[in-house]
């Protein structure tokens, strides 16, 4: 088990957004968290990455407690994340975006008096990541000038920069065209061979086709967890989420 939460809870004033969630993510799986809007998915995610403090409960990553760590410490521990809304260094090139992200985990990132090009390892690593994701061709373009689909891939590239063992992806296909979504699905399947991936997703196609485990969140609580076929046939899930989904 690579990631485990015990009784993870988040209150916002009187509202309980996430309620006593016990989540277990097995190593080497692609694990999806689904649920209707307001189910607490993003809140859960933000607690895992340290963006917001937890109200109660603990988070264990590779057996070590990471509850209360700052986001940059969690990134250093080996958890990479992407955001639902693109958060890129818009005026910098694609390669520089990734190099910056890589260099955070290499020697000399606080070096003041040496030129950044004197450190060649982060540049090489950044190029490798762009190659792996198939976006090496746009290395010199500014991130802010890319079409949305390529920006989503760059989001994943930045999450990969830390050489994470666990990748947290917040709606990787949000706002993507169907064609681009297919590309992203292929990409994630490929990445899933060497990494553990935890995904929050609305896109049912993506969830059903790539997940090995699906956890369903409803009103802040886990109502089901299992393989895609188990989830598809789960009545409670159908009532809470899928039924609703097909209606609209």
């Amino acid at each position: 088990m690579i990631l485990r939460t015990v009784g993870l809870t988040k209150h916002f004033g009187g509202l309980t957004a996430v309620n006593k969630v016990d989540l277990s993510v097995e190593e080497g799986t692609i694990h999806s968290i689904i649920g209707p809007n307001g189910a607490g998915k993003t809140t859960l995610f933000n607690m895992l990455t340290g963006e917001i403090p937890v109200s109660d409960g603990e988070i264990y990553f590779q057996g070590k407690k990471i509850t209360g760590l700052k986001p940059h410490q969690i990134a250093k521990a080996g958890i990479g994340r992407s955001f639902q809304q693109n958060r890129l260094f818009n005026n910098l090139t694609v390669l520089e975006n990734v190099r910056l992200a890589v260099h955070a985990h290499h020697k000399g990132h606080f070096s003041l008096l040496r030129h950044f090009r004197a450190f060649s390892r982060p540049v090489e690593k950044a190029r490798e990541i762009l190659e792996e994701l198939g976006i090496a061709g746009i290395a010199a373009k500014k991130a802010g000038e890319l079409p949305h689909g390529q920006q989503r891939i760059l989001e994943v590239a930045l999450a990969l920069a830390a050489d994470p063992v666990l990748l947290l992806l917040d709606e990787p296909t949000s706002g993507m065209s169907p064609d681009d979504s297919v590309k992203m699905i292929r990409l994630l399947k490929e990445l899933g061979k060497r990494l553990t991936i935890l995904i929050i997703e609305h896109n049912m196609n993506l969830v059903m086709s790539i997940s090995s485990v699906i956890t369903v969140l409803h009103q802040g609580e886990i109502i089901a967890s299992g393989s895609p076929s188990e989830i598809e046939n789960n009545e409670e899930v159908n009532r809470a989420y899928l039924g609703e989904h097909t209606r609209c």
Binding site: T49, K70, P71, H72, A75, K76, R81, F83, R87, L88, F89, N90, N91, L92, L100, A101, A104, H105, H109, L158, A161, A162
Partner: peptide
């Protein structure tokens, strides 16, 4: 420069 461009992302990548 990364902080100027996007501080949340700069944190998320580990700075």
């Amino acid at each position: 420069v990364a902080i100027k461009e996007n501080p949340e992302r700069a944190v998320a990548v580990g700075y």
